[in-house]
Every structure is written in C-alpha cells, then in structure tokens.
Amino acid sequence: MTNTELERCIRTYGKELYSFCRSLTHSVQEADDLYQDTFLKAMELEQKIDCGQNPKSYLLSVAVRLWKNRRRKYAWRRRICEERVYAQEVSGQEWADEEQSPEEWLLAREEAAAVRQAVERLPERQRVIVLLYYMEELSVAQIAGVVKIPEGTVKSRLYQARKSLQRELEDILYEERFG
C-alpha cells in the first residue's frame, strides 16, 4: 500500500475507526495508539487494503484483536498505575441546525453524553458489540466475523446490553420530546 492509498483509507475510514477506538479505550492516548497500530497492522497483514472492497470490517477486526491483546499487556500496568481517564464528551457537535433552538441542541447534547456514559458502563464484551452495531452499523453477521464469535452469541450480548441500557436510560426513553 502506498502512502497515497493509506491517506485515502484514513480519509474514508479514519473518523469511524477513531471514534470506535475512543469509545473502546476511554483514553485519548490509548485511542491514538490503537488507531495508528490498527492501520499499521492492517498494512502488515494485508499489504494492500483495497478501498473498493470496503475494508471497514477488516480494520475494525484488527482493532478489536489488537485491543484484546493490548489489554492483556497492560493489565499489569493498570493494576499499579492509575490510567488517565478520558472524560467522554460528545465532540465535534456544534450548534448549526437552523431548525433546532440552542436549548434543544444543548438538551440533545446532554442526552447523547448520558447515553454514551451508559454504554461506557457496559461490560466490555457487550460494549464492543453495541459499538459495532450502533456506531459502526455492522450487521450481526458482520460483527460475528469481526469479533470471531457465533452469531447467536452476538445476538445474546446485544440483547443483554439493550436490556441494561433500557434500564439505565429509562428517564430518557420516557421523556417528553420537544414540540
């Protein structure tokens, strides 16, 4: 893969991959490392990433594999050192919607932050599935391929996660909406 091809892949998939890494790791530093290593590992494993073949699932599966392995490597470090905690925020969202008042925009932003925090509190094996399903919009079959578990297990984890989230987000689910 040439640098131009890598740049094209970064342009096409960078944002989705980076968002996934941020949500997975909770740490800017670890997300930055995981993001870079994912692209580098993907290049190493498959000399040419053909952007025409939609390599998003492939990149995500490399990221998940690296993260699982990295957690093992850093487990010892974690027990001893405090990790810099990434205070999750809904970045990149600015009030630009003509049809939405600033108050509505602020409420929507707060709601998104609450939802992301609820997702963050999920056990990791459920969180990965939720991120792949709702953030990366992969199908159950694609997720099974990325995480390398049976489709039934993906469904079951998704169900468990949705049930927990339903409980956690009860206030938001029954909240009266604007207008």
Partner: peptide, 28 residues
C-alpha cells in the same frame, strides 16, 4: 432505544491531523 443509541453513538471523534501525519510517517 435503537434510535437514541444510533444518534448518540454516531461517529464524531475526528483523528487530529497531527495524529494522521504521525501515522503516515510511521508507515513510511
């Protein structure tokens, strides 16, 4: 719930241009 999750989890975190530059340098 699905709608709320999809909206809240829409990928919004952009990698910094310096990070992408560093990545390209490392690839080189």
């Amino acid at each position: 719930l699905d709608d709320i999750l999809k909206r809240a989890l829409t990928p919004n975190d952009e990698p910094d241009f310096r990070l992408n530059r560093k990545l390209l340098n490392r690839a080189k």
